[in-house]
Every structure is written in structure tokens, then in C-alpha cells.
């Protein structure tokens, strides 16, 4: 019996279909301005690829900030619980999950059963998140995917003192105007994200092993800076963006069978 999880984030939407605790299909789309439409689209695609229709899904859990808008969901669970469950599925040794998504970042502590025992989230701003990187990539005139590569070529890291996305963008613009190398600025930006995230990790305390989920986990420069900052080796799953939807799908199966 197939079960599904759907994660409507601020920038991307994901759907995962599982059966007997195994992923059988997943999709990632951009959310756009209508989270309801994004949910329909991402679910339809995942079903198509799996050769299923919505009626085949026994139980569906929605998560992410758009979870309340998904009418076809049987249950809604927060992204904190879902990311924790997804990460634990990939590696049951994980006790700390760092999730940096489009507009928020969170650190989740798990127990040996994969249950959330503590968590911390960023303040109500997008500093140090995917949106932050998007704005900075734009200011540096580079594709988001090329930001990490650009920073790899840096000789020094420029210190970025503003945490706020809007102020940091002005700071970057003025650094460019001063003629500082874009590479060095890019590295500075990645380090500033790592510093901010490390602060969040300290709030709940780090316990090995650590996994990173969410879109920003795809940025290798951030991961490297975080490894240094936290003095650990963060596990990066093959598809970090689907952790929330995966956790939701697994919780759907657990919920139904219990």
C-alpha cells in the first residue's frame, strides 16, 4: 500500500511516495505564488511517475509552511518532526539535524528512536537561509548553483558583518564597489551562514552524528564551512531537499498502520 508525504516550502515543493518503508518515487518543483497549485502539481507528477492515482494513496501527510492549504491531506505535521523522521530514515545514527530551507533554518535533536527531543529555529527573518543565498547570488551576478564554485576559488574570505539579508546585500554591493574579488565575498557569505547556523546548533547542543537537510545542503561551500565551524563531518543525503516530504510519507505509513 502506497503512502505519500508532501512538503510545501517557501521556495520548493516536494512529494514522496513510500511503500513498506521504501521510497518508490519523489518529485521536486518550485512553489511559486500559489502553494495549493504547487501541491497539486508536485503530487500529480510523483503519482504519474509511479503509475498511480491519488486514490491509490492510503494516507497522506502534508508538511511545510503551506501544509494548511493542502486539502487532500489526511494529516498535517510540522516540518520539524518530518525532517527529523526523514533524516533518521537515511541514517539512524543521526542525533542532530540541520535543515536550512528557503526561508528558515532549524536544528533538530533526535533521540535513538528518531523522536524529536529538542529543536531551535531562526528568528523571523531569512538571514542565513536559501533566500539569503539567492539574493547574494544575484548581487554577485552568478547563478545560485555556481555560488559555491565561485567561493572555492577564493584566496581570502571577506568578513560580512550584517546578518540581515537586506543589510548584507547592501554590504556586498559596497564591497563590490570597493573592488574586492567576488570569490572572496562569496566565501565570506558562506562563512557568515555557517557562523549563524553554528550559533543555532549551540542553542540545542551538538550530538554526533550530524546530518544536513534542505536545499542549502546542496551548497558544498556552506557544508564545508559548517564542518570546520562545528568540528564535525556532516552527513549529506543524496537528496537533502526531500527530507521533509520523505519524513511525512513515512509518518503517514506509521500513522496508518498504528
Amino acid at each position: 500500500m502506497p503512502f505519500a508525504g508532501i512538503d510545501i516550502g517557501s521556495l520548493t515543493a516536494e512529494a514522496v511516495i513510500v511503500d513498506q518503508g521504501e521510497i518508490i518515487q519523489y518529485t521536486i518543483c518550485s512553489t511559486g505564488s500559489n502553494s495549493r497549485k504547487a501541491a497539486d502539481k508536485v503530487m500529480k507528477l510523483a503519482l504519474q511517475r509511479a503509475g498511480l492515482v491519488l486514490a491509490d494513496i492510503e494516507y497522506l501527510v502534508a508538511t511545510g509552511y503551506g501544509r494548511v492549504n493542502i486539502e487532500f491531506a489526511d494529516k498535517r505535521i510540522t516540518e520539524i518532526t518530518c525532517h527529523g523522521r526523514g533524516a533518521y530514515f537515511w541514517n539512524p545514527e543521526v542525533r542532530t539535524v540541520i535543515d536550512i530551507g528557503g526561508q528558515d533554518s532549524k536544528v533538530i535533536r533526535l533521540n535513538d528512536k528518531g523522536r524529536v527531543v529538542d529543536f531551535a529555529m531562526n528568528d523571523k527573518c531569512a538571514a542565513g537561509t536559501g533566500r539569503f543565498l539567492e539574493v547574494m547570488a544575484h548581487a554577485l551576478e552568478v547563478e545560485l548553483a555556481g555560488l559555491s564554485e565561485l567561493s572555492d576559488k577564493a584566496i581570502n574570505a571577506v568578513s560580512i558583518s550584517s546578518m540581515c539579508t537586506v543589510f548584507a546585500e547592501s554590504e556586498v554591493v559596497s564591497l563590490i564597489a570597493r573592488g574586492l574579488p567576488r570569490e572572496d565575498i562569496a566565501r565570506g557569505l558562506h562563512q557568515s551562514i555557517a557562523e549563524r547556523t553554528a550559533g543555532l546548533v549551540k542553542r540545542v547542543g551538538l550530538e554526533e552524528r550530524v546530518m544536513m537537510t534542505g536545499g542549502v545542503a546542496c551548497n558544498s561551500a556552506v557544508v564545508r564551512a559548517l564542518n570546520e565551524k562545528l568540528n564535525t563531518l556532516i552527513i549529506i543525503p543524496s537528496e537533502p531537499q526531500i527530507a521533509g516530504a520523505l519524513g511525512a510519507a513515512l509518518l503517514a505509513e506509521e500513522e496508518f498502520t498504528s
Binding site: 509552511y65 505535521i77 510540522t78 516540518e79 520539524i80 518532526t81 523522536r115 524529536v116 527531543v117 529543536f119 529555529m121
Partner: peptide, 9 residues
């Protein structure tokens, strides 16, 4: 979201 996640614990 924070409160709901806390209650889910």
C-alpha cells in the same frame, strides 16, 4: 509551527 512542533514531541 514552533508550538505545533513542540506539541508533536
Amino acid at each position: 509551527t514552533r508550538l505545533q512542533a513542540f506539541l508533536e514531541m
